Amino acid sequence: DRHTIHIGDITIHLEGFSEEELKLAEELIKRGIHLEEVKRILEELYR
């Protein structure tokens, strides 16, 4: 499954994450956390 996060003019595609995980990812990215770090956090929390 493919999910999309929109932040301003930026569109990020993250596959294989639930709606809850994507909301967390979006919040972290909006707070300035680097995408690679966001992915690592999600994997630690949900895998």
Rank of each mutant, 00 (worst) to 15 (best):
D1S: 07
D1V: 07
D1H: 10
R2H: 14
R2S: 13
R2F: 14
R2I: 14
R2Q: 12
R2K: 15
R2D: 13
R2G: 14
R2M: 15
H3K: 09
H3Q: 07
H3T: 12
H3N: 09
H3R: 04
H3L: 10
T4C: 13
T4Y: 00
T4S: 10
T4G: 06
T4A: 09
T4M: 02
T4R: 04
T4V: 12
T4I: 10
I5V: 07
I5W: 00
I5Q: 05
I5M: 01
I5S: 06
I5G: 11
H6Y: 00
H6R: 12
H6I: 13
I7C: 11
I7E: 07
I7Y: 06
I7V: 12
G8N: 07
G8I: 06
G8Q: 07
G8R: 03
G8L: 05
G8S: 08
D9V: 05
D9M: 07
D9C: 08
D9A: 12
D9N: 10
D9S: 10
D9Q: 10
D9P: 13
I10A: 07
I10L: 06
I10G: 07
I10R: 06
I10N: 10
I10H: 11
T11D: 09
T11H: 14
T11Y: 05
T11S: 11
T11I: 07
T11V: 09
T11K: 10
T11M: 09
T11E: 10
I12R: 03
I12W: 00
I12T: 05
I12D: 04
I12E: 03
I12G: 04
H13D: 11
H13Q: 12
H13N: 08
H13F: 11
H13E: 07
H13Y: 12
L14K: 02
L14I: 08
L14M: 11
L14N: 02
L14S: 05
E15T: 13
E15Q: 11
E15W: 09
E15G: 11
E15F: 07
E15L: 13
G16I: 13
G16Q: 04
G16N: 07
G16V: 11
G16L: 08
G16D: 07
G16C: 07
G16E: 05
F17M: 07
F17V: 12
F17K: 03
F17L: 09
F17P: 04
S18R: 13
S18H: 13
S18E: 08
S18D: 11
S18M: 09
E19L: 13
E19A: 12
E19M: 09
E19K: 10
E19Q: 13
E19W: 11
E19N: 13
E19T: 12
E19C: 11
E20C: 12
E20W: 05
E20Q: 14
E20G: 12
E20N: 09
E20D: 10
E20V: 10
E20F: 07
E20I: 09
E20L: 11
E21L: 14
E21Q: 12
E21S: 13
E21N: 07
E21P: 13
L22P: 01
L22A: 11
L22F: 11
L22N: 08
L22Y: 08
L22I: 13
L22R: 08
K23N: 06
K23G: 06
K23L: 08
K23F: 07
K23E: 06
K23I: 08
L24N: 03
L24F: 12
L24R: 04
L24Y: 13
L24M: 13
L24E: 03
L24W: 08
A25P: 01
A25M: 09
A25K: 03
A25Y: 04
A25F: 13
A25Q: 01
A25E: 02
A25G: 07
A25N: 00
E26L: 12
E26M: 11
E26V: 14
E26T: 13
E26W: 07
E27P: 01
E27F: 02
E27N: 08
L28M: 13
L28F: 06
L28D: 00
L28V: 02
L28H: 02
L28T: 01
L28A: 02
L28S: 01
L28I: 05
L28Q: 01
L28K: 01
L28R: 01
I29R: 02
I29A: 02
I29C: 03
I29W: 02
I29P: 00
I29Y: 03
K30Y: 08
K30T: 13
K30C: 05
K30V: 07
K30S: 09
K30I: 09
R31K: 09
R31Y: 06
R31E: 06
R31L: 14
R31C: 13
G32S: 07
G32D: 03
G32Y: 06
G32Q: 03
G32T: 06
I33N: 03
I33D: 04
I33S: 05
I33W: 05
I33M: 12
I33L: 14
I33P: 02
I33V: 12
H34I: 06
H34K: 14
H34Q: 13
H34N: 11
H34W: 06
L35F: 10
L35T: 06
L35P: 11
L35C: 02
L35D: 05
L35I: 15
E36G: 07
E36R: 05
E36F: 01
E36A: 10
E37C: 01
E37H: 04
E37F: 05
E37D: 12
E37T: 09
E37A: 07
V38W: 03
V38G: 00
V38S: 00
K39R: 11
K39L: 15
K39D: 01
K39C: 09
K39M: 15
K39I: 14
K39Y: 09
R40D: 01
R40F: 01
R40M: 06
R40W: 02
R40P: 00
I41M: 10
I41Y: 05
I41A: 05
I41H: 01
I41F: 08
I41R: 02
I41C: 03
L42E: 00
L42A: 00
L42T: 00
L42Y: 00
L42P: 00
L42S: 00
E43G: 00
E43N: 03
E43T: 01
E43C: 02
E43R: 01
E43I: 03
E44V: 01
E44D: 15
E44K: 01
E44R: 00
E44P: 01
E44A: 01
E44C: 09
L45Q: 09
L45D: 15
L45H: 14
L45T: 03
L45R: 05
L45W: 14
L45P: 00
L45S: 05
Y46I: 15
Y46F: 15
Y46L: 15
Y46A: 15
Y46K: 15
Y46P: 15
R47P: 15
R47N: 15
R47V: 14
R47K: 15
R47L: 15
R47Y: 03
R47H: 15
R47T: 12
